[in-house]
């Protein structure tokens, strides 16, 4: 177990280092950020000075080396635009994004898994066909359209929910959250539903495929021959055997939603990380982009580790090595 932990940590470090190299190289191709931070009427001398201050006058390897040195000391660079540590900017926005992602994933899991189990256990029934057709719609509809439709219906037509922004927040353990206020929830619900649709459809389809496979197995028939109820057979014996691919996709989707909730956040003017990323790209705010992508890579690596550990909890035949 200790050897496994060390191995995984080393792997994570290698992945993050590789990501840092790639991100840094990519950034150097995106144009000179100095023009984004200086006034439009600056003189050549002023431009040169700005370059020096930002460290952009040095060679690429030199810049990277400096970046790495700072990184190890916990300094992730400062935003050109906000003149604040890039990491602080991102961490400030992270809770808002996590909020809608967590709610979205919960919606997806609690809706998709029961529906997928039903559709997988009763493949021929009309309701199953309806569920599957519905899931195709869920996969096909683009998030921005769904978001706008939801705003149109719930905020404009029926005036049930606010159209955009984040509601009242309270601070818990130093983290601002809107999940503990009624107003917060009314703001969370539409972006979360929008965000959840694609994931919901995918998880539903994977759960169904897994259940169809599992329901053919002898141990399902054996469980029925014991006199187990339908519910016990489906959820007690079937679902857990169908869960491995579901957990894999679930993990990938969490990472995906955290990293790229951009479109939904933009539509709902949700002050999360995704909006920060888009703004930073517009402003060529290199340090923020670099830190953002590094953080996303870290999130993915950690989620992968968690997924692997969850495998071992689900299926005793899988062990960590």
């Amino acid at each position: 177990m200790l050897a496994y932990a060390i191995k995984r940590l080393v792997q994570m470090a290698i992945v993050l280092w590789a990501v840092s190299v790639i991100v840094f190289l990519m950034m150097s191709f995106t144009g000179d950020p100095v023009f984004m931070v200086i006034p439009i009427d600056s003189t050549d001398a002023e431009i040169e000075q700005a370059r020096r201050i930002l460290g952009l006058d040095r060679s690429m390897p030199e810049q990277y080396w400096l970046f790495l040195q700072n990184l190890v000391q916990g300094d992730f660079g400062r935003s050109y635009v906000f003149r604040q540590p890039a990491m602080d900017l991102i961490l400030e926005r992270l809770p808002a994004t996590l909020e809608i992602v967590i709610v979205a994933m919960l919606i997806a899991a609690f809706v998709a898994i029961p529906l997928g189990v039903y559709a997988g256990a009763n493949p021929g029934k009309p309701l199953s066909r309806l569920i599957m057709s519905g899931s195709l719609v869920g996969i096909s509809l683009p998030g921005f359209w769904v978001g706008m439709m939801l705003i149109f219906l719930f905020a404009v037509e029926w005036r049930l929910l606010p159209s955009s922004g984040r509601g009242d927040t309270v601070e818990v353990l130093g983290i601002e959250t809107s999940l503990l206020t009624w107003d917060g929830w009314t703001h969370v619900i539409l972006p979360s539903v929008t965000l959840s649709l694609g994931t919901l459809a995918i998880i539903l389809r994977i759960t169904r495929a897994g259940m169809m496979e599992v329901m053919r197995q002898d141990y399902i028939k054996f469980a029925r021959a014991k006199g187990a109820s339908r519910k016990d057979v489906l959820y007690g014996h079937g679902l857990r055997n169908a869960l491995i691919p579901v957990v894999t996709i679930f993990g990938l989707q969490i990472g995906d939603l955290i990293a790229f909730a951009t479109i939904t956040e933009t539509i709902f003017a949700w002050p999360g990380m995704g909006k920060l990323l888009v703004d930073s790209i517009y402003r060529a705010d290199r340090p923020v982009i670099v830190v953002y992508l590094m953080l996303v890579a870290l999130i993915f690596v950690v989620i992968n580790l968690v997924v692997d550990l969850v495998y071992t909890a689900i299926d005793p035949r899988i062990t960590v090595k």
Binding site: D218, A225, G227, P316
Partner: peptide, 21 residues
């Protein structure tokens, strides 16, 4: 009735037990 009155033994013991329980 299943299990209590009539119980069943299946053909292939490699597949008739649930692998995750």
């Amino acid at each position: 009735i299943r299990g209590r009155e009539i119980a069943m033994i299946f053909q292939d013991p490699m597949t008739s037990l649930n692998p995750v329980k």
